[in-house]
Computed example of a mutant assay.
Amino acid sequence: MDTSTGTLLNGAVKHPLLLADPWFMITVLGLYLYVVNSVLPQFMLFRKPFELKKFMLLHNVIQVVSCIYVIREILFVTDNGVIYFWKCRQLSQSTENVRRHFSLAYFLFWLKLSELVETMIFVLRQKQNQVTKLHLFHHVATLTLVYLLIHYNQNGSSAYFCAFLNSIVHIIMYSYYFVAAVADKSIVRTLQPIKKSITVIQMVQFALILVQLPTQIVLCGVPRGVIIYFGTVIIAMFYGFYDFYTNAYKSDHRVKNRE
């Protein structure tokens, strides 16, 4: 195997230079937070919002296609066993399986990195209200979780359960965004309940991942530090999306009831 897909060296893995240690990721995330919270808001202070419709459509298509690819590769790497999340199954050590395991992990890293663009789109369109603490935390945390997958995957195929669910959610979400961007306003209003349902689906995703967590602790022997960090992130995301759902939708329901 070449270094672009990971090289097995005496049982260890030689990762590509940028992914060999966390400093590239830390640097990018630091710049990301600085740019979206300071540089771009200052840049947009006396400017009209950019439309960016074509770029957004392209971004949505790329995300959907990428998630379909991720699901296909997960099914291959796990031998279609990813849905059995409670089982501990070691990944096959065949040359092809190892190659595609690391190729997939690296692809997930760059895919999550590309999602940071969404925050910049919000700011450039002067939708700073969408750059919430939950939004920033979600993007930062998911990238760090993929880094853990690359370097600390000791629970085999079960580690891909999270990415599998997330890819399904993102296919639904980005498909909705694409349709909402090109459809007539009346159609968008008709599809509004789907937006609410996406938030519910995201919470269900996190709930299923939390159901999986005890099996990884008890049965799979995942390092305690990894489990604590992973569990903390998922709980925080679940709470964040639940809080968003409560404030965004239940408050709307109360207002309608008063009318």
Rank of each mutant, 00 (worst) to 15 (best):
N10Y: 15
H15S: 04
H15T: 05
L17E: 13
L19R: 05
D21M: 01
W23D: 05
F24D: 04
Y32P: 07
S38A: 10
V39T: 15
V39Q: 06
L52Q: 09
K54W: 11
F55A: 15
L57N: 04
L57I: 00
L57Y: 00
S66P: 01
I68H: 00
I68A: 11
Y69P: 00
Y69R: 00
I83E: 09
Y84G: 00
R89W: 04
E96Y: 05
R100T: 01
Y106G: 03
L108Q: 09
L108G: 02
L111M: 13
L111P: 00
S114F: 13
Q126Y: 07
Q126A: 10
Q128I: 14
T132K: 03
K133T: 08
H135F: 09
H139T: 06
V140F: 09
L143H: 01
T144F: 15
Y147F: 15
I150G: 02
H151N: 12
S157K: 05
F161A: 07
A163P: 14
Y174Q: 09
A181K: 05
V182P: 01
V182C: 09
Q192G: 09
S197R: 02
L208A: 11
V211Q: 08
L213W: 09
T215A: 12
I217R: 03
P223E: 10
I228R: 03
Y229M: 01
T232M: 08
F238I: 04
F244H: 08
Y245E: 03
Y245R: 03
T246Q: 09
A248H: 07
A248K: 06
V255I: 05
K256W: 02
